[in-house]
């Protein structure tokens, strides 16, 4: 059984902090979500995950870009890179790097969801037949994607798996499980290409996408329920999972 081998002390350096778990759900309303799945260099398969998690075969990563028009933190754009994994038998994504456009959202995402982000300029340009996404961090182009030829899918065809954010919590350093329940109005699948991707800005230079599997753009509301479970980062989910009261 494959398990992650990343140095947790290294991962901890980028961990967010949740001072106190809250009971309130978060809703990203009137939101566009671009999601891209890519296979990545297999040498990174175990190296990017803490030992609580199992990699998928082949190693793969997911980029999610949320263009949120209404939320308790106002309008913002969030881009995050997750490594696809399993927590116990559950399909999950471990967040390796994230960027956001506003300080208010940055603070909220960290304190409520344990998601550590960096401020960046994130553009999502949507045209009828094309979507372009670019992320500028400290003047450097750290990601640019062109997505073409949208093809309609049913809203039930798209699956969102839960996200795990490494964060300092009242329980200690934990993987914080963030669930995402979309209420979608529209889903399209697109053909995407990376024009630019700098893995070192997203958590590790080992993040090297080798081929895009698929990408989608969806529109609707995204409900992020209050945190219910956290997991010790160095213990398998079967025994390391804790519920949050």
């Amino acid at each position: 059984m494959l398990v992650g081998s990343a140095d947790i002390d290294e991962l901890k350096k980028n961990a967010g902090t949740i001072p106190q778990f809250t009971a309130d759900d978060i809703v990203f309303e009137d939101t566009t979500c671009f999601q891209l799945v890519a296979e990545m260099d297999n040498t990174a398969r175990e190296a990017l995950l803490p030992s609580a998690l199992h990699p998928t075969i082949p190693a793969s990563m997911v980029l999610q870009v949320f263009n949120v028009r209404t939320s308790v933190w106002g309008a913002f754009v969030l881009a995050l890179i997750r490594v696809s994994c399993r927590s116990g038998v559950r399909a999950r994504g471990f967040t390796l790097g994230a960027m956001v456009t506003t300080e208010k959202a940055q603070k909220g995402l960290e304190h409520v969801l344990g998601l550590s982000t960096r401020l960046a300029v994130i553009d999502m340009e949507e045209a009828y037949a094309e979507t372009r996404i670019s992320v500028l961090f400290s003047g450097a182009q750290v990601l640019e994607i062109q997505a073409l030829d949208p093809e309609p899918l049913s809203t039930s065809d798209l699956q969102f798996t839960g996200t795990l954010n490494l964060a300092n919590t009242p329980n200690g350093l934990r993987l914080v499980q963030v669930e995402c329940i979309p209420q979608l109005m529209r889903v399209e699948r697109l053909q995407s290409t990376f024009n630019s991707f700098q893995g070192e800005y997203w958590g590790s230079p080992l993040l090297r996408p080798t081929q895009v599997v698929t990408s989608t753009i969806s529109r609707g509301d995204f409900l992020l329920p209050a945190i219910r479970f956290v997991c010790k980062p160095d213990e398998l989910a079967f025994t390391g999972t804790e519920s949050v009261k």
């Binding site: 494959l2 799945v37 399993r86 038998v89 798209l158 889903v187 699948r189 698929t214």
Partner: peptide
């Protein structure tokens, strides 16, 4: 069952009507 769930399921990677 654990080994089974570590596979990368088509629905997870490639949204399509063909895999529900």
């Amino acid at each position: 069952n654990v080994a089974n769930t570590h596979l990368y399921w088509t629905r997870e990677a490639f949204p399509t009507r063909a895999y529900q």
